[in-house]
Each structure stands twice: as C-alpha cells, then as structure tokens.
Design a protein around this nucleic acid. Sequence first.
DNA 1: CTGACATATTCACATATGTAGATGTTTTAG
DNA 2: CTAAAACATCTACATATGTGAATATGTCAG
Lengths: 118, 118
Amino acid sequence: MYRKIAAEELANFLGAISHPERIRIIEELRHGELDVTTLQERLAIPQATVSRHLGVLKTQTIVAERKDGRRVYYRLTVPVLASWLISGLDIIGEKSTQGVPLSKAFDSAKKLWASQKR
Amino acid sequence: MYRKIAAEELANFLGAISHPERIRIIEELRHGELDVTTLQERLAIPQATVSRHLGVLKTQTIVAERKDGRRVYYRLTVPVLASWLISGLDIIGEKSTQGVPLSKAFDSAKKLWASQKR
DNA sequence: CTGACATATTCACATATGTAGATGTTTTAG
DNA sequence: CTAAAACATCTACATATGTGAATATGTCAG
C-alpha cells in the first residue's frame, strides 16, 4: 500500500498532464519525437505557449528533449504513457456527448478495460 | 483519433483527480463504499475538506453517493479507476525516492507495463 | 559578422484552486 | 420538541496556474 508521499507524487504527475494542450502534446508525441515548431503548427497555439507546456511536462520527466541544430525534438520519456492516457479517455468515453448519462459512458468504458486487465 | 473536446474532457477528468487527498480518497474507496466520517478519520483532515474533495470528484462523476440515515456513503462510479490510477503510480515508481534518477524509475515502470499492453 | 530562424524565458495580469473556520441542513435519539 | 451527529456550503484569504506580448538566447546561412 502507498501513503501520503506516493499520493503527492501521483498528484504532481497527473497535475502536469491535466491540461488540454498538454494532453494533445502527449498524443502528438505518441508515435515518436517532434520538434517545437511542428507541435506548434499541429496545436495551432502561440510558440511561447507550446514551450511553456513542454516545460511543465519536462518538470515531471514526462518528456525529454534532444537538440539538433536550432531545433529541439521532444519525445515521451515513457511511450506507454500515451496509451495509458487513452485508456483514461475510454473511461470517460461518451461523456463528451452531453445528453448521454455518464454512468452509461463509464459502463461501456468498463468493458473496454476488462480486455486489458493486468 | 480524438481532438480538442476529448482533450478537454480528459483534462477535466485528470484535473479532478490530481490532488493528493483526492487520490487517497480514491484509494480508500477501492474496495467499496465508505461514509464521510470514516474517510475523514483515515485521511486525518478536517471534515469540510473531505466534503469539498468529494464534491470535486462528484463533479466529474468519479464518485457517487448513497444516503443512509444521516450518513452518506461514497463509492467509485468506475471501480477500475483505482487500478488505473495505481498503474500510473507504477509509471512514476521509484521517482519518490529522491536520489534515484527519474529515467530509471520510468524504465522499470515500462517493464511493469509491458505485460499488460492492449 | 549579420540577419533570420527556432526556442526559451520574463513580465504583468487574470483566473482557478485550495484552506480553515463558521454556519446551514437534515436526521436521529431521547 | 430538542440537542447532537453527520454532511454540505459559504466566506475570506492565500497560493497556484495560465495567458499574451515582449524580450532573451542560441544557431545557422550567407
């Protein structure tokens, strides 16, 4: 069992992830490294914003950088993080369609999860 | 593939979870429902604080309540959420032991995860 | 060198989140 | 009915997080 310190670490970890644009960054990096400009184009947000978000992710060692000339390529430190995150998306599933009761969304998510239980 | 809205939903979801005490609440509820007083005793924090945290979790339909007399019992809407969260803990693993470089923690976490790939 | 490109950082400000303590509501015991 | 238990909510305040705009840093082309 884990206690306070682990809960704090986990909170910091999730806190670094829980931002729409940072989630999209993680998604974009799912298949491999990308440089900042490419990320900026895909997200369509200011360069400074991308840079700061990458900084937050770096804080928790979620991404790592590799410099090549004037470009900086970022990658997921733990690639499986992306699929872990997508699992979370499955959990909330149909929640995004406002009319549908959330319990149903979680219900279908539960089934999705059953197939990949540890 | 998912886009902006899904990323926002996921961010809200993770945002509701990413707090040390809320993570501990989820952990406590892993094996079944508990009333507020019991949670308060286990977390050793003010009653009002427990109540607000439960409110935040309720916002994202992470917990549901059942009233019985003057007690209110809370449970995880999707029990598998707890194990999903623990998977996240495995990912950051040894990170909590400050001296150890994080990359090593992620490395060992990667192995743990490999066995339960989708 | 110099200018343009790629990225990071700083500043000033706005919004969000968290906390303790007091108060309100509902429910049960007597 | 009344008091106490069990929760929820409100208030006031502090801290954290997010943003755009400007600026700084490093690197390459010519």
